[in-house]
Nucleic acid binder design. Structure first.
Lengths: 111, 111
DNA sequence: CGCGTACACAACTATTTGGTTGTGCAACGG
DNA sequence: CCGTTGCACAACCAAATAGTTGTGTACGCG
């Protein structure tokens, strides 16, 4: 089950290792070995995580000689953020905080 | 693993049944049986899903006689949206779409 | 008190997940 | 050609997930 797009995206995000991979990729494309290095984990395990991210369409892969660089794909992330924003909005009348939350995050450019 | 707050939230969101429960709760508090009704699933199964949502702190429960109404808790949802917004922002220079995405969602008040 | 309702806990099961090791294979360098 | 590097595929395993049925329990009603 949970094979719909949104479920795949949230499931992919539900792992610290995968989120760390995304954070790293947000700063530029990287090879599997580059991504694997910071983790106390085999290259194959990281490869599996990347595959999960690929299936969720959060990362795209290209070929460059013998390396397979990974790059981010933001569209699905938008879908996830969209779902939250949309449904959070329903009871936003009670208290509105997301806006200032995002404003804060946008504010700390130095972080 | 994946016991950190953010992982719990994303994992909780990674299931269509649980997202449907949240959508229903966004429209008002409900009892377990009320929540269970639309699903082809036992009351116990729904109870388990609610427990997952509770552990992720997406729902809060109260006591009201023999019923245990469920209510939404938006704080963690903000955290999830915040993570996405924060990290999406890093490569937002390439193309900026989340803002108009949210603007759109906020725009369709009738939806 | 005894019954029905609303819910939770426990045990069991199948499937998925997240990791391992071993190995194969394509691409480059000497 | 041969060795090294970069990565994927396969088999295997432990633990978590998502469901089931069965049962227990707290509350309210008559």
């Amino acid at each position: 089950m949970t094979t719909d797009e949104l479920s795949l995206v949230f499931a992919a995000l539900a792992d610290p290792t995968r989120r760390a991979i995304l954070e790293r990729l947000a700063r530029g494309d990287a090879t599997v070995n580059q991504l694997a290095e910071p983790f106390a984990m085999s290259q194959q395990a990281v490869s599996k995580h990347i595959k999960v991210l690929e299936k969720a369409r959060l990362v795209q892969r290209t070929r460059s000689a013998q390396s397979r660089p990974c790059a981010l794909d933001a569209v699905r992330l938008d879908a996830a953020a969209g779902w939250i924003a949309e449904h959070r909005r329903v009871w936003a009348d009670r208290y509105d905080r997301l806006d200032e939350h995002i404003a804060q995050l946008r504010g700390r450019d130095s972080g």
